[in-house]
Each structure stands twice: as structure tokens, then as C-alpha cells.
């Protein structure tokens, strides 16, 4: 119970922080996720399959896309491996399905996150990174809000990466 309460608190903090960057955060039961994604995508959409048995992508999302489909897509759907509550950050892990390009090249990035995978702070996140990266030699991105630049004389959201990010938290 205590653990569950901590998870809920972390998700709440995460959502508040992420909304500060213009990121929409919504919570869904596993069986509702497919529908929620379908409602939020802007077609065409590509995605990488979600690593959880009880959660799936809607048919409107092309999984295992070609490079051409990646290029044409407006929305990219990927799982997030972890989130950092105090910063409103997502941890996007590079994988063989292409989550790194799918979360990067499209205007809208939809990230799907498990409630239990939200950690409180950076210290907790880096304990996780330390173990994971030493062991697997994988790559990951700590992504906070959409891509942005101030180099053109004012703050603009959507530089080289997505203009908009939405997070679906699976309860």
C-alpha cells in the first residue's frame, strides 16, 4: 500500500512538472490505453511495440515502420522506460525497434509510461542508469518537454525534434 501511494504521489509530481513544459499527461487503466492512444494520434502515426502484455497499440499506429513511413508520419508512439517526477522528465531507451528515431523525427510524440516506473528524483534515476548502462551498454535520452530553441530570437517549441509531447500513464 505504501509503495502504491508513493507511486501515485510520484505520478502527480511528474504530471505537474511535465505540464509546466506544455506536456499533456493523462492516466488510464491498461485496457483503456489503446483507445486513448487512438484518440490522441494525428495521422499518419508510427510506433514501436509496447513491452507490456496488457497494453497494446491501436491499428492506426504502424508498428515496425519503414524509413519512408517514419519520414511521412506526424505522430510517433513509444514506451518510456522511466520517468523522473521532480523534473517532469521521461527516460526514452534506444532499442532495436527504433524507439529513438520514432520519438524524435515526428511532430507529435506520444509516450506510454507505467505508473510504477516513475521515480522521485535524479538520484534515483541515476542509480538505475548506473546499473543499466554498465550492464547493457545501451543508450537512453532524458527528455523533458518538446524540443525547443531560442536561437532564432525567441523561444520556439519544435526545433529538430517534436513540437508536442503527450504522456499516457498506465495505472
Amino acid at each position: 500500500m505504501a509503495q502504491q501511494q508513493r507511486d501515485v504521489d510520484n505520478v502527480e509530481t511528474f504530471a505537474t512538472q511535465a505540464r509546466g513544459y506544455g506536456v499533456d499527461v493523462s492516466r488510464h487503466a491498461p485496457e483503456e490505453v489503446e483507445q486513448a492512444i487512438a484518440e490522441r494520434i494525428e495521422p499518419p502515426a508510427v510506433g514501436t511495440s509496447l513491452p507490456w502484455e496488457d497494453v497494446s497499440l491501436p491499428p492506426a499506429v504502424t508498428t515496425d515502420p519503414t524509413t519512408g513511413e517514419l519520414r511521412e508520419a506526424v505522430t510517433g508512439v513509444t514506451p518510456a522506460a522511466l520517468a523522473v517526477a521532480s523534473y517532469g522528465s521521461l527516460v526514452l531507451r534506444a532499442d532495436d525497434h527504433g524507439s529513438e528515431p520514432v520519438s524524435l523525427f515526428n511532430d507529435l510524440h506520444l509516450a506510454v509510461l507505467q505508473e510504477a516506473d516513475v521515480v522521485a528524483d535524479m538520484a534515483a534515476a541515476f542509480t538505475w542508469f548506473g546499473e543499466e548502462l554498465r550492464e547493457t551498454r545501451d543508450s537512453a535520452i532524458i527528455a523533458t518537454g518538446p524540443s525547443a530553441t531560442a536561437d532564432m530570437g525567441a523561444l520556439v517549441q519544435g526545433a529538430h525534434g517534436p513540437k508536442r509531447v503527450e504522456v499516457l500513464v498506465v495505472t
Binding site: D64, G68, E100, R137, S139, T144, S147
Partner: peptide, 27 residues
């Protein structure tokens, strides 16, 4: 925090998009 803190462990084991071969699967 900035939008992206990248933790790359190169050579990065993520698939390369081949934009000159649009029919090739990404994975």
C-alpha cells in the same frame, strides 16, 4: 533541465534510418 540529456553509449545500437531506401524496415 534542457529538453534532452542524451546518454549515448556508442557505437549506438539503435537502428539507422536509411532515407535513401524508404522501403527498408527501420528495425
Amino acid at each position: 533541465i534542457t529538453s534532452y540529456v542524451s546518454l549515448f553509449t556508442p557505437p549506438v545500437s539503435s537502428p539507422r534510418p536509411h532515407f535513401d531506401e524508404p522501403e527498408t524496415p527501420l528495425a
